[in-house]
Nucleic acid binder design. Structure first.
Lengths: 144, 144
DNA sequence: AATAATTCCAAGTAATATAGTAGGAATTAT
DNA sequence: ATAATTCCTACTATATTACTTGGAATTATT
């Protein structure tokens, strides 16, 4: 039940953008360097985030990326769904309810539904504003 | 953040064993047929469960597997940990705390820790007895 | 004692998903 | 015109998952 690097790098990049919110654009190079990954790889992740409408971009010199709305209006669930396709732990718990023919008779299904619900509760109730705030506090404490 | 088939098949097999608890052994063939997977594959999963001390086995004719303790004393977390190594969504949230050098400065870490906690809460508070009970109720309702 | 039913074990393979790399076209401020 | 940047698509390498295969060891039954 591991989270992919897409989700990890992408979410951290979004927190970086949240902390720069209101200060214009950030370019891929700056974002990628902070995380020690290649520009090209992060570009792909940001492309997904853009397609999902979470970031805006400006092309050309002095261009870059910025959040398309306030950090408080973007949550971790939005971001992970954009980066990983969904937050579902398996097909049969999604809203589309694909998969497993015997869904309604599966002895494990009630557990999976409950687990999925709890996961989405956490992700959907944590905004970028929350994360950026926590991070600032942590840094001010000197835990760097 | 998908759950592997090991986790899914293995957990369902454990519920099957829970429902047969007290009635002697079940053999791999019976368990595998119920799920439509090969004996050989399920054997591997059950081997992990046995190594973790969750099931006991008797070799030879009329042998088979059974839970090594009462269904109420085995929870979903135990089972998934045996089958998948851990329930961790990433290395840096585990008790061993491997990985990511910059753990304490990571802007996403508080979220990951909270998410992991919620996941383990659900898994560790759901026993095989609970699951078997739910399943019986569901079947009696005629939702088969 | 022979047989059939079973767990146990180790190694191999096929398929899928993840994690990137590479190269260049399009756009825009300077 | 140039340099800085996003955008796009395809490719590749690696790791993980999901099995398959073959046979040895054990034990109840006949």
């Amino acid at each position: 039940m591991r989270l992919s690097t897409r989700g990890r790098y992408g979410l951290k990049a979004m927190v970086d953008l949240a902390m720069a919110y209101g200060d214009g654009n950030m370019n891929i190079g700056a974002l990628a360097t902070q995380q020690g990954i290649s520009d090209a790889y992060l570009e792909q992740l940001v492309a997904s985030l853009k397609r999902a409408g979470l970031v805006s971009s400006v092309r050309g010199a002095q261009g870059g990326y910025s959040l398309s709305r306030e950090p408080s209006q973007i949550n971790a669930g939005d971001i992970l769904r954009a980066l990983e396709g969904s937050t579902d732990i398996m097909d049969c718990v999604g809203t589309t309810h694909v998969g497993c023919d015997s869904a309604c008779t599966c002895s494990a299904r009630p557990l999976w539904l409950k687990l999925q619900k709890r996961i989405d509760e956490v992700l959907d109730n944590t905004s970028l504003a929350d994360m950026a705030e926590d991070y600032k506090i942590q840094k001010n404490r000197g835990n760097v």
